[in-house]
Simulated scan of single mutants.
Amino acid sequence: MSQQASDVLKSLASEPQLCSEDALFDIDSEGRWFYQNSPLPTKFARLFSGILKKQDQEYFLVTPVEKVRVEVEAEPFKIVDYKIASDNTVQVMTSIETEYSLGSIETFLVSDACISCKLPNGLMASLNRACYYRFIEEFLTENN
């Protein structure tokens, strides 16, 4: 292998460089994505969500060659629908139309402020208002 190829492979294996100290992307409390304060179309938010990671309490879009800071107001994803599958796993749909499969209903964390769950890459999602009340009625009331 040439020295140039070896150097390229080493650079890809190391931590990518932060492009800017400023956040170029923002995600508001409703899970809406913005790029430099302009709304990001859902198809692009969905694309970027695949490389979103939480590292040391900060959020970044991470590729093999660069890293971009993302400012997140609450959780990066808002769950707009969920369903219990026949095997008792929970299928959730986010506001940017990404889908995740969770282990079970016990995966959800219930607090006074919100109902949330863990997703891959250290990420969290919370239920939107409609799902929040539906979840309470289905799983947290005395009748259920």
Rank of each mutant, 00 (worst) to 15 (best):
P64D: 09
P64A: 06
P64V: 01
V65Y: 13
V65E: 14
V65I: 15
E66F: 02
E66P: 00
E66Y: 03
E66S: 06
E66Q: 09
K67T: 11
K67G: 11
K67D: 11
V68N: 08
V68Y: 12
V68P: 03
R69L: 12
R69S: 13
V70E: 09
V70R: 10
V70T: 08
E71G: 11
V72G: 02
V72H: 05
V72D: 04
V72F: 04
E73S: 11
E73G: 05
E73L: 02
E73A: 12
E73M: 06
E73T: 07
A74Q: 13
E75T: 15
E75G: 01
E75R: 13
E75C: 15
P76Y: 04
F77W: 12
F77P: 10
K78G: 06
K78H: 09
K78Y: 00
K78S: 14
I79F: 02
I79Y: 01
I79S: 05
I79V: 14
I79G: 03
V80M: 10
V80P: 05
V80C: 14
V80L: 08
V80D: 10
D81G: 13
D81T: 07
D81Y: 12
D81R: 13
Y82L: 11
Y82Q: 08
K83V: 06
K83N: 12
K83G: 07
K83S: 13
K83D: 08
I84V: 15
I84G: 11
I84N: 14
A85H: 10
A85E: 15
A85S: 12
A85P: 00
A85C: 12
A85M: 14
A85G: 01
S86M: 03
S86L: 05
S86G: 01
D87Q: 05
D87F: 06
D87N: 15
D87C: 02
T89C: 12
T89N: 11
T89G: 02
T89L: 03
T89Y: 03
V90M: 07
V90G: 02
Q91G: 00
Q91C: 02
V92P: 00
M93E: 14
M93A: 10
M93Y: 02
M93I: 10
M93L: 14
T94C: 07
T94V: 07
T94Q: 08
T94D: 09
T94F: 00
T94M: 03
T94N: 05
S95T: 08
S95C: 09
S95A: 11
I96P: 02
I96C: 08
I96Q: 04
I96E: 03
E97V: 00
E97L: 04
E97I: 00
T98P: 00
T98R: 11
T98K: 11
T98M: 07
E99G: 06
E99F: 00
Y100K: 04
Y100Q: 07
Y100D: 10
Y100M: 07
Y100G: 08
Y100T: 09
